[in-house]
Nucleic acid binder design. Sequence first.
DNA 1: CGCAAATATACCTTGACACGTATATGCTTT
DNA 2: AAAGCATATACGTGTCAAGGTATATTTGCG
Lengths: 131, 131
Amino acid sequence: MESFDIIAEPNRRAILSLLVSSQQSVGEIERQLRMTQPTVSKHLRVLREAGFVESTVDAQRRLYRLKPEPFQELDAWLARFRRFWSDHVDALERHLDRMDPSTPTMATPTKRKTSRSRRGPNRERDKGEKK
Amino acid sequence: MESFDIIAEPNRRAILSLLVSSQQSVGEIERQLRMTQPTVSKHLRVLREAGFVESTVDAQRRLYRLKPEPFQELDAWLARFRRFWSDHVDALERHLDRMDPSTPTMATPTKRKTSRSRRGPNRERDKGEKK
DNA sequence: CGCAAATATACCTTGACACGTATATGCTTT
DNA sequence: AAAGCATATACGTGTCAAGGTATATTTGCG
């Protein structure tokens, strides 16, 4: 499960973000992200071997597009903590807004004020710390 | 946003996972994860500086517990791709571009089977390159 | 057929980081 | 106050990965 190392690299994250909109060729990525071509190719290789992307051949170009599995894997790991933080949002209320499991949140890193965090299916909260 | 580098380290992920259940002291972490004490302390430092954990003093021990913000941040990033993968899990069969709850999602190729219906604007996903 | 375009790979250098050992700091108990 | 446990930090070392430059490979075109 080295998926975490993959997305640790900023340029790779940039590439992945770029591929969300549509598939791209190496050259297009190169130009949009202003990286040298070998750098792009190498990152794409890493991403491909880790299953984040796949490529098809279009003449002399390679078109790269996202594959979902590794993201699901990452999400599965994060899920462990989701219970935790969804418990605490109301404790620290003023940090993020809501996270609805069925709504594609466009949450930008900027935190907004607050908006009546609705707590849907919630687990029990406390756990019994306090030694 | 270096949160990604933080969770790239396996030991740090282990520590975080350990803290999900309840807060722990350095020594407890050390024993459960069989890491040397300085290693634990250093990882905890990194985690603290990145906002993943916070500590309270209990006599000569420090009790570490999770903080939610960085996880929400990570989730916010992943969210961009969530739309993508929830669309594409069954798009591997590549002949249904709808998300009808009753869509006969036939055997998913390899992995698990996700039956997540989507709602909202919808997907656009360009296409039609073929040179 | 030879050249140009697009992409991949090889080699090298550099820097970051994780670990271990040793030591410092701090609190607690006699 | 001295000793001892719990945690933090300093330093030296090895590893690994990312970027750059140069080159190989494949395909298209005149």
